[in-house]
Design a protein around this nucleic acid. Structure first.
Lengths: 188, 188
DNA sequence: AGGAAATCTTGGCGCTGACAAGATTGGAGG
DNA sequence: CCTCCAATCTTGTCAGCGCCAAGATTTCCT
């Protein structure tokens, strides 16, 4: 057992992820993570400063992974609704990351790396909205906001258990994402 | 100072709400709530069992308040988009309640009272969706799901600070909620 | 080779949530 | 009126937690 671990930082992040999947991000304990990783109770502090630092690192990682997934989807299929599918699929297939990303008060929301990663994901949604099949929706900047809200909310409600993903996550997400349209002509 | 408080339960809930508004639901401490309320550190335990019990009570209260607000709006204005406005306005004007309602792993999500309150709010959205101006959307059960996701996501992103409520919460919510339409005729 | 820097451990402090046991109070029945 | 019981709140205690300080060990740079 070497004194130096090799890549303890990565190992701690992975250990934290499995712990979060088991008991949620709120119940996460630095000492428990350290125990599972086989190091002393103060080892995580050195790598992340404090508990918020670890969670912030996980959130930034999550937004980065999501932005990458959105980029890959945009290259494969230009339709906006497919970005929405990718968003929801990411949330349900990486529940630990997504839980940290959206939990209130767990992370340092002004962390530069976190802000940059989240902005990158938002930008992919924005440019995806500009490719909406309906030109009236494509040229409206509000389409990106509404689209983001739509898929973020769907992902959140599914993860919370408020909405059942039937028949499956991908099909439901595709159907819901397709409901986004232009502003109605008559507003009254 | 009487030994019996009168309505300590209500006082503890209110104290917890202000504490949550200050430092978020995750940082809530039962002992701090007890201190602020001027009672012993074990008093909250008697009323709520444990910390999760207090948070669950707050979440149930929040869903009840939201359901009431939706019911009042539905009576005043039958349009589905107005329900969405009420949803988002509730979230931003009761941030402590909404934070507890959507935070992962803070509450006992199978609590009967909580489940009932949440179902009541969801039912209001469902019947509101059935009054969508476009008959194709009104008769589709997916409209309610998409509408709930849309406004829940918008509220969450605003509270997280990811989306700026411009020009103001109500106007933005009305515009976004109006983007919900029927399924597109051509899916390709 | 040798000193500086990075990595990890040991020890300790105050705070927390939960539990157990006791004190105080209000209310129902005689 | 009084007695007993249940509800309410307090005091005391325990293990676990986050965080800080100091020390041990290893690696890296020159």
């Amino acid at each position: 057992m070497p004194y130096h671990h090799g890549d303890l930082r990565r190992a701690l992040l992975d250990t934290a992820l499995t712990a979060i999947e088991e008991h949620g991000p709120v119940a996460l304990s630095l000492r428990d993570v350290a125990r599972r990783a086989g190091v002393s109770h103060a080892a995580p502090t050195h790598h992340f400063g404090d508990k918020t630092g670890l969670l912030t690192a996980l959130a930034a990682e999550g937004w980065t992974m999501l932005a990458d997934a959105l980029a890959a989807t945009a290259q494969r299929d230009p339709r906006f609704s497919e970005l929405g599918v990718t968003y929801v699929v990411f949330a349900t297939s990486h529940p630990a990351h997504f839980a940290v990303m959206r939990a209130p008060g767990l992370v340092r929301s002004d962390d530069p790396e976190l802000v940059a990663a989240q902005k990158r994901a938002a930008d992919h949604l924005r440019s995806g909205a500009a490719r909406h099949p309906d030109p009236r929706a494509a040229e409206d900047p509000l389409t990106a906001v509404a689209g983001w809200a739509l898929v973020h909310g769907l992902a959140a409600l599914i993860v919370e258990g408020s909405i059942a993903p039937e028949p499956d996550v991908e099909t439901l997400a595709r159907a819901v994402a397709g409901r986004l349209g232009p502003a109605p002509v008559t507003n009254r």
